[in-house]
């Protein structure tokens, strides 16, 4: 049996079938004497099985006709101009998914920031929601009946082209909006209400330098914030709806906000 020092690197090699067969015995013995490494190996093994099973079904799906046609030459082969769809989704997935785990990455980089920008945004948004959504008569400064002015005013103050999203598809009507402080800059808050009086708010600020996305709650049973940060702006949707429902409304709102920013 070959004697050598093993390390975490060998866990990966063993898992991937890259460990020389004659080292396997020594490796297994090493694992047995290192409970921590053994546990790590077990977790990675389980993750691999989960990954494989998550995608196993794809092989059994019928091959889409359009792909067969490409190979069989039934559609003329054109110059490859990447279709928009897949890379749009890819890019978006990066934006939407990656940031949600910002805390983890921060920790990994050894920065260990407990209160990064995304937490700050979410906290400000939740604080604003808690205060103003509870107000019956003074919830907003500019009512929805004056929507054009509301949008122009907030856009000018915040420094972003703001278009109040239409959330009627989710059952929410615009109540109005107000201007708020957000750190050193300003934020726009748009308040919405459904026919049961349930309120959600959108909190938009032009101050953000990072990409992040996630869900945040500052207290048990309190409202939650679904937020996005991108270069140049941050947005949080706050409400006490069930999380899935909030996420759906938030996506709708965010999509429209972005479309508005770009218009």
């Amino acid at each position: 049996m070959i004697r050598r020092d093993f390390s975490e690197r060998d866990i990966h090699m063993a898992l991937d079938g890259e460990l020389p067969a004659d080292e396997r015995g020594a490796y297994d013995a090493w694992l047995d004497t290192n409970p921590e490494m053994k546990a790590r190996s077990a977790r990675f093994t389980a993750d691999r099985e989960a990954l494989r099973s998550a995608f196993a079904g794809v092989l059994d799906e019928p091959v889409p006709a359009r792909l067969r046609k490409v190979v069989l030459g039934e559609t003329p082969v054109k110059t490859v101009i990447p279709r928009s769809r897949w890379w749009l989704a890819a890019a978006a997935a990066v934006l939407l998914v990656t940031g949600g785990f910002g805390g983890y990455f921060a920790g990994m980089d050894g920065i260990g920031q407990e209160n990064p920008a995304e937490d700050r945004l979410a906290e400000q948004a939740i604080a604003a929601h808690v205060i103003y959504a509870a107000e019956k008569r003074h919830a907003v400064e500019v009512p929805a009946s004056d929507k054009d002015h509301l949008q122009t005013w907030l856009s000018n103050r915040v420094g972003l082209k703001l278009v109040a999203p239409d959330l009627t598809a989710n059952g929410f009507q615009l109540v109005g909006g107000r201007l708020l402080p957000a750190g050193d800059s300003k934020a726009a808050m748009l308040l919405y209400e459904d026919d049961k009086g349930e309120r959600i708010s959108l909190f938009v600020t032009a101050e953000s330098v990072e990409n992040a996305k996630g869900t945040y709650a500052s207290a048990q049973d309190g409202p939650q914030a679904v937020y996005w940060l991108d270069k140049g702006y941050g947005c949080a949707v706050v409400g006490s709806l069930p999380r899935e429902q909030l996420a759906v409304v938030a996506k709708n709102a965010y999509g429209q906000l972005l479309a508005g920013l770009a218009s």
């Binding site: 939407l96 140049g232 972005l258």
Partner: peptide, 12 residues
């Protein structure tokens, strides 16, 4: 990427 989350929202 900033322009895209609509698509992604759908995808996700």
């Amino acid at each position: 990427a900033a322009m895209l989350p609509l698509e992604a929202g759908e995808a996700v």
